[in-house]
Computed example of a mutant assay.
Amino acid sequence: MDCCRRNNPNERCALFLVLALIFDLIGFGLLLAGIFAPISFWDFFILSGPVLIFLSLIFWIFWYIGGLTVPYEDLLPK
């Protein structure tokens, strides 16, 4: 992926980091809205919040894997 081809380790896969944080925040917000808001369809919020938090794990894994570096010598055939 092109978003992971930066030289600075802090800039690697920033897109996946932002997506993971957005999914976590929205999921946590939906969960809290389902718990504390007096709405008639609260079960939708209580169930969809944790699903979004679970789906954010995909972006967290992509972010972590994209930040790994492999020395060039290990990529050469032996």
Rank of each mutant, 00 (worst) to 15 (best):
W60E: 03
F45P: 07
P71C: 05
F23T: 10
E11C: 06
L21Y: 07
D43N: 14
I53A: 05
F62E: 10
P38N: 15
D74V: 04
E73L: 10
D74I: 04
A20Y: 01
I61M: 03
L57K: 12
V51A: 09
G29L: 07
V18K: 09
F28I: 10
R12Q: 09
R6D: 08
G29R: 03
S40V: 12
G27M: 01
Y72T: 12
L47F: 15
L55P: 00
F54T: 13
V70Q: 11
L15T: 09
V18N: 05
N10F: 11
L76V: 15
L31S: 07
I35N: 02
C3A: 06
S56F: 03
L52Q: 05
C4R: 07
I35R: 03
L32H: 02
L15H: 10
K78V: 13
L47C: 15
L17W: 11
F16D: 02
N10R: 12
G29P: 01
F23V: 07
N7H: 13
D24K: 12
A14H: 10
M1R: 13
L31P: 02
E11L: 08
F54C: 11
Y64M: 12
L52I: 04
N7E: 14
F41N: 15
G27D: 02
D43Q: 15
P50N: 00
G34M: 09
L47D: 15
G34L: 09
F62T: 04
D74Y: 08
I46H: 04
I22L: 14
G49D: 01
G27E: 01
R12A: 12
N10H: 10
L68P: 03
L57Y: 08
F59K: 00
W42A: 14
A20E: 01
S40A: 11
C13E: 02
I39M: 14
F44I: 05
C4Q: 11
N8T: 08
G66H: 01
P77D: 07
F44P: 01
S48T: 14
R12K: 14
L75K: 03
L25E: 11
C4H: 06
R5F: 05
A33D: 04
L30E: 00
W60L: 03
W42I: 08
M1S: 14
A33H: 07
F45N: 13
V18D: 04
G27Y: 02
P71Q: 05
E11A: 06
L68F: 08
V18L: 09
N10T: 10
D74G: 05
M1Y: 12
Y72M: 11
Y72G: 08
M1G: 15
D2Q: 07
R12H: 04
L21S: 09
G67D: 01
F41D: 15
Y72E: 13
W60F: 03
N8A: 10
L17T: 12
I46R: 11
F45C: 12
Y64L: 14
N7R: 14
F16T: 00
A37K: 07
L15R: 11
